[in-house]
């Protein structure tokens, strides 16, 4: 599907997704403002904006980071992944309102450049309690900006999937910086246990979900492979559901073995679009369909149907009785391999 980074286009589903996001943002900001004005009316408008948008951004970041592991734990979360980039860009915008307002409020109209001031006003870099926490927020915002700016598939196509993926893994760095930004910053002074408890709980949920989902995958990677003349044993035919795949690991690479129309075919597990797990996809209209954004590949040769040009590696399989074996040597992407008949 390569001609066309536009392929993942606007559709009803995406509009609904965006509408829900928009609604959540309004609910949050209104909720924060109404509660602050009714219980703590001496606030200043600037502080209200800085705090409402800062706390909204961190909440959104938590939800975004939860979607990944949730989809690996339960496939029904998959639609949340589909339009996650809008979620990410909106989160960046919320964080940017917070950051820009903070810079205007605390650093403009002074005797040095505002950006220089972020780094040089508080110089206690060697103290934890006095640490210049705004620097951490600033670095996080830069990372989030780079991610938002390159989130379009245009960049994916032009940066190579590996670079893009690496860039987008930096969200974990940004998350760590933000958590430090809060705990070394606002929470040194705004010490309510409500706040500390809430953000602590959020971070715990993120870590726990990732560990839990990670375990599920490690199990696939470490499943014992027994060898026979260089062929790896995978499973028996009955272990694979019709139109679905079984994943295995060959020479450190994950491979997906699909069963369909009484045949078996094996392809490399990694979707050429954004690295989605093809093995969690399904055969739809005769094509392996990626669970993330629906890119498609023909099981017999690992190629996207024309006019698209994506290709993934293919593998040889053999059947002994009802036992499925795979040759761990990958063929070049797009190499036709005859499916084996069951």
């Amino acid at each position: 599907m390569g001609l066309d980074y536009q392929l993942v286009l606007w559709n009803k589903q995406k509009k609904r997704y965006d509408l829900v996001l928009f609604l959540f943002i309004v609910i949050y900001l209104l909720g924060f403002a109404v509660v602050t004005f009714t219980t703590n009316a001496n606030t200043s408008l600037e502080t209200l904006i800085i705090r409402a948008f800062g706390s909204l951004a961190i909440l959104m970041l938590h939800i975004i980071l939860m979607i990944g592991p949730l989809t690996r734990i339960d496939k029904r979360f998959m639609p949340l992944l589909y339009n996650r980039r809008h979620f990410g860009v909106l989160m960046f915008l919320m964080a940017a309102v917070h950051g820009v307002f903070s810079i205007i409020q605390f650093h403009t109209l002074g005797n040095v450049n505002p950006i220089v001031s972020i780094f040089t006003s508080n110089l206690d870099y060697n103290s934890l309690t006095n640490f210049p926490f705004q620097v951490l927020g600033f670095l996080a915002l830069i990372i989030l900006f780079l991610m938002a700016a390159t989130s379009h598939d245009f960049w994916l196509a032009n940066l190579s999937a590996k670079t893009w993926k690496a860039l987008h893994m930096a969200v974990y760095l940004a998350y760590t910086l933000v958590i430090l930004h809060i705990f070394l910053g606002a929470f040194q002074q705004e010490t309510s246990p409500l706040l500390l408890g809430l953000v602590g709980l959020g971070a715990t949920i993120i870590v726990a979900l990732h560990i839990f989902a990670g375990f599920k995958e490690v199990k696939v990677d470490q499943a014992k492979v027994s060898e026979e003349d260089g062929w790896h044993y995978v499973c028996s035919v009955e272990d694979i559901k019709e139109n679905r795949a079984k994943m295995t690991t060959c020479a450190g690479e994950r491979v997906a073995i699909f069963k369909y129309e009484g045949k078996l075919s094996a392809v490399h597990n990694v979707c050429r679009h954004q690295g989605g797990p093809l093995g969690e996809g399904k055969i739809v209209d005769g094509c392996i369909t990626c669970p993330w954004h629906g890119y498609q590949y023909l099981p017999g040769n690992g190629q996207s149907p024309p006019p698209f040009t994506e290709k993934v590696e293919t593998y040889n399989l053999k059947l002994v009785g009802n036992k499925v074996y795979i040759d761990p040597k990958a063929h070049a992407p797009g190499t036709p391999v005859d499916p084996i008949k069951i």
Partner: peptide, 13 residues
Amino acid sequence: VLGVAIIFALGQK
């Protein structure tokens, strides 16, 4: 989401 907004708002000194 609403709950988090309320907690963040109430948590302010």
